[in-house]
Design a protein around this nucleic acid. Structure first.
Lengths: 161, 161
DNA sequence: AAAAATATGTCAACATAACTGACATATTGT
DNA sequence: ACAATATGTCAGTTATGTTGACATATTTTT
């Protein structure tokens, strides 16, 4: 567990011109794993009470964040298949957390909105995650938020469009 | 420093003493989702060729990083059940990527090590992830790495021990 | 108007990776 | 001897993803 610039050092020391661009960043890879593991486990207690899983959480979150988004939008955001989405979306609709409205211009579309209950649940799920983030940012120091935002945005694969 | 106190501002503006500690950080929550979604998809191509999944990747990664760790250590790290681990671990052992050695002091233990092939695979899987991190850090600016490290460490639930 | 394309929904079968519960074996500690 | 521990394994279940095929309504193109 002792902090170490060992990996970089190893690469520099490597005999002759063996490997120069070596130095794999295992440290951040691992920190990301732990951070995300614990971050996603926060809402599990609340979800379980309602018989939902993380898939439901993700759908509810994005519909809540972008009211009126279509099924196609959601598929593109979550990167799952229509059939995978259908199951959890149907459950959320049947449970009264999300409702659909036919698109005003294109009536083939189903625009998605959270109901009042949906908004409440989305908020409740986000709360412990938000608290965790706030605490981590506070411990990191002032100005951290902007750096984190830029880093995380940079980790996302750029969209082609 | 000059981030955006928008959400905080909204909360401050809220009528009467409605919500003060409100301000849920949807923005970072979402950025984390996209960052992790794309980060974990990097090694998928390599894994698929060998008939492995992300579960195998995680096991291989940690055994490679901490040679000699026991099954119990691994269970604690991954936060999955013994039966879940057994399946993927067995496959990695049978495929010759990981080997076991009875503990020298406590012979009930199975100390885990990556084989030569295991090390090679672990490195190959980490490489695209490491590259993504390096690019994101470069875009974020100098000094970002330390801030990111501290933030991610702060996101992890503290261990009791 | 007819044909093609698009957005969504749905059926069926299957894969992966998690879960619970129970029990077996070898080894260590009391 | 007995209890506790570390690991392995059997059997069944659940959550969430997959592919492929096809139906329906609607919009766009020809």
């Amino acid at each position: 567990m002792a902090g170490q610039p060992n990996k970089k050092a190893d690469a520099d020391i490597s005999p002759a011109g063996t490997d120069i661009t070596d130095a794999v960043d295992f440290e951040i890879i691992e920190l990301l794993f732990f951070a995300y593991r614990d971050f996603t486990s926060d809402p599990d207690v609340i979800l379980e009470k309602r018989g939902f899983g993380r898939a439901h959480h993700r759908v509810l979150h994005f519909v809540d964040r972008e009211p009126g988004m279509t099924v196609a939008d959601l598929l593109d955001t979550l990167r799952i298949t229509k059939q995978s989405l259908a199951r959890v979306l149907k459950q959320l609709i049947d449970s009264g957390y999300i409702h659909q409205v036919a698109g005003p211009e294109d009536r083939r579309q189903r625009k998605l909105y959270t109901t009042k209950e949906g908004k409440t649940l989305a908020r409740a799920l986000a709360e412990p995650q938000s608290r965790r983030i706030a605490e981590a940012l506070a411990k990191t120091g002032p100005g951290a938020r902007d750096t984190i935002k830029r880093f995380l945005a940079g980790m996302k694969t750029a969209e082609e469009n």
